[in-house]
């Protein structure tokens, strides 16, 4: 082999290595969710430079929103968030409430909301926002099925996310999962509060999160609790009932429930 050909080969190899390395550098960054079981499946946590999808049925919209807000809170790490929302989604499942968001432990000051009139605008804006590496995460919320969200669109988002290292989170309400280039895909439902009397206190937000796609590992299903104070997911903190409580014990001690102020 002549030296010219050798050097060409070497330069090509170098080129390919650089291409791959640039992708890998961001891809290696994983952020732990806090839930031990899920983190183990995800090999340490959610990849930062990737697309993650959260699906939910129409009436489970609020739970899925809470879950994706949690993911964004973990991934963004106190950097600004851009939330791209279709107009129709706001009518159907309600506007995002800032006081609700701050109750979840996220900072409303870091949120910029983009109200896109249609899905084309939403996609374009999301891709634009993903190119800006000052952001912590970009969330795109879409209601219903859509033809435009195909493999090409999701590939574009993935590439944009990989080149900047900004995670893209897709919230798909009232939609069924279709093939895409997402790193992970979740189906989220609301989970019950800890068992107790009907007047006893609620716990923290609880999600029944099902991981239905994981590009680099197995899938699973967990009950996750969002800890508003620490801003992380965890295993449900309430004690699992192991035995029936004795009948003669006083009521208060039996449930261990405390009542909190209403307002």
């Amino acid at each position: 082999m002549t030296s010219a050909r050798l050097s060409t080969l070497a330069s090509l190899r170098g080129h390919i290595e650089r291409l791959e390395a640039s992708n890998e550098a961001h891809a290696l960054q994983r952020i732990a969710l806090g839930h031990a079981g899920a983190d183990a499946m995800l090999k340490g946590g959610l990849a930062k430079a990737a697309v993650h999808e959260v699906f939910a049925e129409g009436h489970q919209g609020a739970s899925a929103t809470g879950f994706i807000a949690g993911l964004a809170g973990r991934l963004a790490a106190r950097k600004p968030l851009v939330w791209v929302r279709q107009d129709f989604s706001e009518i159907e499942s309600g506007a995002l409430s800032m006081s609700g968001l701050s109750e979840l432990g996220l900072d409303p000051r870091l949120l910029v909301t983009v109200r896109a009139a249609d899905i084309d605008n939403a996609l374009r804006t999301t891709a634009d926002a993903l190119a800006c590496d000052a952001l912590g995460a970009v969330i795109m919320e879409v209601w219903g099925e859509s033809k435009q969200l195909d493999l090409v669109a999701s590939r574009k988002l993935t590439l944009a996310s990989q080149s900047s290292g900004v995670p893209a989170l897709l919230l798909r309400l009232a939609a069924t999962p279709l093939p895409s280039t997402a790193e992970t895909r979740w189906i989220v439902r609301a989970a019950h509060s800890p068992p107790g009397a009907s007047w006893s206190t609620w716990g923290a937000p609880l999600f029944d999160a099902q991981l239905v796609r994981n590009r680099h590992g197995p899938v699973g299903r967990w009950i996750m609790e969002w800890k508003c104070d620490e801003c992380l997911f965890s295993e449900p903190s309430y004690p699992q009932p192991v035995a029936a409580t004795p009948a003669h014990r006083p009521d208060q001690a039996a449930t261990g429930a405390k009542q909190r102020l209403a307002g």
Partner: peptide, 24 residues
Amino acid sequence: ATSQAAWPARTEGEPPLRPLRLFE
């Protein structure tokens, strides 16, 4: 103006008091 906005502080250790999605 947003970076200086003062939002009501949440109560530590309490589950959310306000909903995440609010109907207009």
